[in-house]
Structures are given as C-alpha cells and as structure tokens.
C-alpha cells in the first residue's frame, strides 16, 4: 500500500477539473494504454493567460491526483509561467509522492509541455510511448534513453548520466542497472568502433594525452616561460600541474580550460576534463 498524503487522497477521491474542453486552445497527450498510464490535458488560453484547464487520465491514484493538481496550478498563469512548472512543483503541491510514483508528476509536466506546444501550433515534443524498457521508474527513463546518452552525448559515468537524464536521482534503486548499461554500451564501443568516435583503450588514451602534451601544449607554454606536468589520468579526468610562469599566473585556470583542455579534446577525446592536481 502506498503512503499518500492527505492532499493526494483528497485529489484522487474528488478530482478537480475532470473532463474535456471541447474548444480547447491546446491539447496535450502523453502515455498510452500500453504503458499503463496516460493523460490528456486541455487548456483554454485568453490573452496569453490560461483561463481553464481540464484533464482525462488513465492511471493510478497519484496519476489522478497529479493531473488534478496540475490543472489547479496552471489556471490563471500566463503560458510562460506555466511552462516553468516542474514535476517537482507538482510533487510539492501534493505534499509529496512516494518515490515510485514520481513518474506520475513527470507525466503531468510532459502533458503540459505538449499542450503548450499544441497551443503554439508546434509539434508535441514528448513522444507517446517510451521506447525500450523502463530502468528508472521514478523518472521514467528507459534503457534506450541511457544508451542514447552514452553514444550521442558521450556520457560514460553515472554522475553525468544522472544529471543528463534524471535517471537514478530519486530513489536510486536502479543505479546498478544504469551502471550495467553504461558499461555494456562502453564495451560495445570497443567491439564495433564505428558506433563511437574513439574506441580507445585506457593505455592508448594515456599515450595520446602524453603525445599531445609533449608535442603541442608544452612547447606553447614554454614560449611564455611556463611548463606543464601530467600527474594522473582517471577515466576522462586529466590531472596536471602548471609550472614556472604559469603556476603563479592569474590566468592559470583560463589557460587550462581555454588552451590545454581545448587541445586535448581536439587531439584525444572530446570528453576529457582538465583538472589541477
């Protein structure tokens, strides 16, 4: 049994703004009968202000409550204000949701985004059905999303994945699975080089970093009376120490980021981060 707040119970028992708006200015639909939850949101807009909002939902108690809360929250707001509402705002309005039910609030926000897009005559940005298997049930992130993030965004560690996709950021139960998928995709890279830019082993990477520092970075720094020392490489983090003129120079950080990091990213891998050891 779920621990629902009084607000959630109140809203699923007596939901507000249920139904259709026949002459709606924007309609947003997310989810499907396959997924097991779906929400259609109708908005009426006058002079840029949402004057009415109604919903129809197929889902559990917290889906009903989240939808109902959302309609209450957006009424009277300008479209721009409504657009800024996050799923966290919905959760707060409800006085909290169980971790496994956070996705209901995500669904609310997605329906809102689609409804606003529809109002503006744009294509709904949120697709109906999630592709792949849901890994993070709280934030509704699928394995496809995670795999895509690895290949298209170059995300290879958990922290970045959490930041980019939101996966694993609520209850954290799925973190080992996220790590598995990242590893799986990373190892796939070294098998079929074509799917990623740089199918490099660690050793190759270290060698290339050294080469770049020796051939490009150091000579340039030396011209200004400085030098650089490679201290450590940990994944994509490259730790260096600046010497001579550079070490005291006020612009050391700028040098690092603008010059050294640029060169290494250009020559070795776009994912590298330079850090002062």
């Amino acid at each position: 049994m779920w621990e629902y707040t009084e607000k959630v119970k109140e809203l699923y028992t007596n939901p507000k703004n249920v139904g259709k708006i026949e002459d709606a200015d924007g309609v947003g639909h997310v989810g499907s009968v396959v997924c097991g939850d779906a929400l259609t949101l109708y908005i009426k807009v006058e002079n840029g202000i949402i004057t009415d909002a109604k919903f129809e939902t197929f889902g559990c108690g917290s889906a009903i409550a989240s939808s109902s809360a959302l309609t209450e929250m957006i009424k009277g707001k300008t479209v721009e204000e409504a657009e800024k509402i996050t799923n966290q705002d919905i959760v707060e309005y409800l006085g909290g949701l169980p971790e496994q039910k956070i996705h209901c609030s995500v669904m609310g926000r997605e329906a809102l985004i689609n409804a606003i897009a529809d109002y503006r005559g744009e294509k709904p940005p949120i697709e109906d059905e999630p592709h792949g298997e849901i890994i993070c049930h709280c934030m509704n992130v699928t394995d496809e999303d995670i795999r895509k993030a690895v290949h298209e965004k170059g995300v290879t560690n958990l922290e970045d994945m959490m930041q980019l996709t939101g996966a694993g950021t609520v209850c954290g139960t799925c973190i080992p699975r996220i790590e598995d998928i990242i590893e799986e995709e990373k190892s796939r890279c070294s098998v079929t080089p074509s799917c990623c830019d740089e199918p490099m082993t660690n050793l190759q990477k270290i060698r290339k970093i050294e080469e770049t520092i020796n051939a490009v970075v150091r000579p340039a720094l030396k011209r200004d009376g400085g030098d650089i020392e490679l201290i450590d490489i940990n994944g994509d983090d490259v730790f260096v120490r600046l010497r001579g003129a550079c070490s005291t120079c006020m612009t050391a950080q700028v040098t690092l980021e603008n010059f050294v990091q640029e060169e290494l990213r250009k020559n070795v891998s776009p994912k590298l981060n330079i850090k002062l050891a």
């Binding site: 779920w2 097991g36 559990c60 889906a63 496994q100 996705h103 999630p130 298997e133 849901i134």
Partner: peptide, 9 residues
C-alpha cells in the same frame, strides 16, 4: 497493473 513502475510489462 504495474502503475508503480510505468513499466511496459
């Protein structure tokens, strides 16, 4: 129903 998960299964 698996609404706790939004799962496809």
């Amino acid at each position: 129903s698996a609404c706790s998960s939004g799962s496809l299964e």
